[in-house]
Each structure stands twice: as structure tokens, then as C-alpha cells.
Design a protein around this nucleic acid. Structure first.
Lengths: 229, 229
DNA sequence: GTCTCAGTTTTGGTATACCAGAATGGATTG
DNA sequence: CAATCCATTCTGGTATACCAAAACTGAGAC
């Protein structure tokens, strides 16, 4: 299990805490405390925090504690905007360059998703959903595009998850995924780009709704507990 | 001058050494040596190396010295491919969302470039060239796009520089830049995207030529010095 | 009662010491 | 003479100690 460096392990641990909501946006991450809590020294923990910072999950402030990122709605939407751009282009590249093998494995993910439709934990289900999109980016055979896609997919993970659990529209998602996979299988560049673009465009409004709902709830709570924004 | 953290200063120093060719691709960067050379301890130097690693200028190897990146031609081309995607989209977004002020400052860069046409150090000239492209990405008002663009612009800096000094086609570059700036000024989305795309597509072949030339030279040298590849 | 300011504490930034794994070089053996 | 193996050394990874700046707190003055 140690094929991952210590800082990467630490980063992964904290990342999970952030994405699952154990660490709330705005919370400080003190390197001393976090380090001793996980039984390591400050040096690797420091490096772990840098990793998360460059992933955009925490903000670094000069001479201050890093804090968990609290992206505004516009920031998240902009990130999804970039994902749309990358994934649409990926779809085109997949049609041109991916092997039949790779395209088949993308279709497999759709199948897996529709089979386990309602049996699994929503979080597991969600990871499958994300892996579908990752697989497309990876099959583009353009490493920088795949890397960047992966990076921003991580970053909007939380927002997408919230959107997914709010709107229980899994059947529509599976249907759209299937359309995308079909277009890729036929190597129909235009159709693939179009269906991907449509699928992700829906996502933007879903995410916007989910985040607005959350914000409203948050400010409501804050007002109640006597700490108005 | 100290509004930049120590690791960032160190990273900048080494970055210049790499881009100017003082540190050749494949050369190891030992954190002890580099640190003492610049009179600092290993900790900030270590962090500086991480910065360069995430910029893609050096490769990190587990339990080995980091080395100066030696990207293959395909890797560089893929990176430029991503830049084309981002910058083309940026041009569209600029037409939609940028302020007149921002568009004007882009035009200013073109003017600056044509004025100082042949007077300046090629490296300075080149930084102006890069700042033109950065300015477009930044004016897209989409931070993730601008960040990613900046990241990969840094990464292909060396390849672009070599392409630029090899082909002394500065006048064509300035001309194309002017066309782009004009399209943006008129907020002509289609024209802006088209001119940007064309400009950068030329770059791909220039870079490919420059790198192939360099590779040929390298292997020639290696063979001569009795260390065939 | 509130504002201010100094002393203390907390925190990130940096330097240094220690450790383990990899590389290297030389001696030994076939 | 070549190949191999062991010891030395070199290098990155980690832990710890120290420093300076920012923040908190509490006492004092207005």
C-alpha cells in the first residue's frame, strides 16, 4: 500500500474529510495540529497542504493558517465551464484516436452504472459517474487535457455531489451517458461533442441550484446562531 | 521586493536557469547543492523544486534527484494543443465579457511589441509575447481557464522560445497579434476565435521543427562524444 | 463602558539533524 | 580481464528546533 508517498497519503486523507464535509469551507487547517493528529511531523503535512492548495481545495494565505476553500457559485460554474470545454474536446479526440478497447471500457462503465442503479451507496454510485467522465478525458490520448480535467473534476466534486443528491435524476443521467457512449462507439465526432456538451450544460444549472440552496440554508443558520454574514 | 515568498524567488531563479539553457534537460537538481549555492536551507529549496515540478519544468522521481524536464515532442505538442483550446475559448469569452479597458490593454501589448521590435533582448521580447497571450486568457473572466492557460504557457515556454529564435518571423507574429487584437476590439467572436486558432496552429509546426532540430543536434553530439543514445 | 496597547501565545517560515534507500567504486574472485 | 559483491557515500525523506510575525488577551487609561 506504500506505493503512495506519505504527503500524498496525508493529502488524500484530508481531501476525503473536505469532500465528505467533515471539514467545512472556511475552516483553518493548522499544520501543527493536523500533523500531530495523524502522527506525522510538520514537514510532510506541510507538503500535503501544498498539494491540496494546488488542487484548489484549500487556500494558502501568507503567514496565516490555510483554510478550506469556500468557492463562490461563480467560481464553481467557471470550473464546470472549463470541464465542459475539456470534455467536449476529449470526445472529439476519442472519436479520432482512442482504441476500440478504450471505447468499449467507457461503455462498460455505463453498463455498470445502470445495473447497480439503485442498489449502492450514493457516494459509490457517484464515484462511478465521475469515473465515466475521467475515462473519456483519459481516452483522448492527450495527457495535459486528461490531467487538467482530472484536476478540476476533483475540485468540483463536492458541488457535483450535492447537485446529484439533491436532484434525484439518476435515470436521466444514465440515459445521457448511454447516448454519449453510443456516439463514441460510432466515432461520430459531431454527435459525441454535442451530447457531451448537452449533458454537462444541464449540470451547470443543477449545480447552481444546489449551491444556492445550500447558501440560503447556511446564511439562515448563521442568522439564527447570532452570527449574521 | 520581498512581496514574493522565498520559495517563489528560488523557483524563479532556477526557472530562468532552465529556460535560458544554463540547466539542460535531464540535468539533476540536487536540493542540497542548489540550496547552499543560493545560500538558503533545504526546506525552502525543496518547496521551490515542488513549484517547478508542478509547472512541469522538472520531473520528480521517488528517492532520486529531480531532473530538468525533457519532454518529448508529442508531449509538447499536446500541451500546445491544450493551449489552443483554452485560448480560442478565451477569445470568445473576451468578446462577450471583457471590459473595453481590458481589450485596450491587450492592444497596448501589441503596440509595445511592434515598437521595440528589434531593439530588445530576444528574451525580453519573448516575455512580452507571452504576456499578450496571458492577457487574453486573463480577460476571459474565467479564472480556471486563465490559471490553466498560465500553467501550460509556462510549461511550453522553453519550446516556444526555441521556436521563436530559430524562425526569425517576428514580423509575422506581430501582424497576427494585431489581427487578433483587432478582432477582439470589434468583439467579433468568430473572427477572434479563428485568428487565434490560426496563430497558434502555426506555432505547432514551428515548435515541432525546432524540437526536431534540437533532438538531431543532441544525438549528433552524443554520438560524437562516444555516448550513443 | 470602551478603547488602546503591551505581553503572551499561536502559527507559519526556516534551518538543521537524523535516517533509510540508492548509487557508486573498489576489491576480490572466477 | 571481467563480473560480482560489499562498503562507503550521496541524496531525498522525515523529524525537530528555532525564529519572526500575526493574533489574542487582559489590564489600564480615558
Amino acid at each position: 500500500m506504500a506505493d503512495e508517498s506519505l504527503p500524498q497519503q496525508l493529502a488524500r486523507q484530508i481531501r476525503r474529510d473536505i469532500l465528505r464535509g467533515k471539514l467545512v469551507p472556511g475552516a483553518p487547517i493548522k499544520e501543527r495540529d493536523s500533523a500531530s493528529e495523524l502522527g506525522v511531523s510538520r514537514t510532510p503535512m506541510r507538503e500535503a497542504i501544498r498539494i491540496l492548495a494546488q488542487e484548489g481545495l484549500v487556500y494558502l494565505r501568507p503567514s496565516r493558517s490555510p483554510i478550506v476553500a469556500a468557492p463562490s457559485i461563480k467560481e464553481v460554474v467557471d470550473q464546470v465551464e472549463l470541464l465542459i470545454l475539456l470534455e467536449t474536446r476529449s470526445a472529439e479526440l476519442v472519436c479520432q484516436f482512442a482504441s476500440d478497447r478504450e471505447i468499449a471500457s467507457i461503455a462498460d462503465i455505463v453498463r455498470l452504472m445502470s445495473e447497480r442503479f439503485d442498489a449502492t451507496d450514493p457516494l459509490d454510485m457517484f464515484e462511478v459517474d465521475m469515473s465515466f467522465h475521467s475515462a473519456i478525458a483519459k481516452a483522448s490520448h492527450n495527457a495535459p487535457i486528461a490531467e487538467t480535467h482530472q484536476r478540476y473534476l476533483q475540485r468540483v466534486w463536492r458541488a457535483r455531489y450535492m447537485a446529484a443528491v439533491q436532484k434525484r435524476n439518476r435515470d436521466k443521467v444514465v440515459c445521457e451517458h448511454r447516448e454519449i457512449a453510443d456516439a463514441l462507439a460510432e466515432r461520430d465526432t459531431a454527435a459525441a461533442a454535442h451530447t457531451i456538451h448537452g449533458h454537462l450544460s444541464h449540470l451547470v444549472s443543477d449545480i447552481r441550484n444546489a449551491l444556492e440552496a445550500e447558501n440560503a440554508e447556511q446564511t439562515g443558520k448563521a442568522r439564527k446562531s447570532g452570527r449574521p454574514e
